[in-house]
């Protein structure tokens, strides 16, 4: 059964870049959200196996989403894909439960390596 994946980013370009960078053999059904509040609504209404999460977004940012996922004990894996590459920020999102941090724009090889590392492909 295909994994349901949520791509959360306020930019259409970034969402499309990420979709294109996913490995061809990655069997997934993709849903999208354009900010943190939309992402939480999706997570609360359907089963999502994996979230690709941007950090710098309007309404609710990625850190807020990670905090909500933790507080509400939502069952999903999160890979942060962000331009905010400060080491402190990378440390913070990992402490909040993110599986990995990928620098924008998402690189196909890096993405495949992370998905492979966690047994997602």
């Amino acid at each position: 059964m295909a994994l349901t994946v949520l791509i959360c980013d306020d930019s259409l370009l970034a969402r499309n870049q990420l979709k294109k960078a996913l490995p061809a053999d990655f069997d997934a059904s993709i849903v999208t959200a354009t900010n943190g509040l939309e992402a939480l609504a999706v997570l609360q209404s359907q089963e999502i196996g994996l979230v690709f999460l941007d950090l710098t977004m309007p309404e609710l940012d990625g850190v807020g989403v990670l905090e909500a996922i933790k507080a509400q004990q939502l069952d999903c894996l999160v890979i942060v894909v962000s331009a905010d590459i400060q080491p402190e920020m990378q440390k913070r999102v990992m402490e909040l439960g993110a599986l990995a941090f990928i620098q924008k724009p998402a690189n196909a090889d890096k993405l495949a390596a992370v998905l492979h590392k966690y047994g997602l492909i």
């Binding site: 331009a83 590459i85 400060q86 920020m89």
Partner: peptide
């Protein structure tokens, strides 16, 4: 956004502090 992220990282290292982007 991507370019600003790189600039913010550089500024944060320059100022030795965290920058909220």
């Amino acid at each position: 956004n991507v370019a600003m992220g790189q600039a913010s990282d550089k500024l944060a290292r320059y100022l030795e502090t965290m920058v909220h982007l």
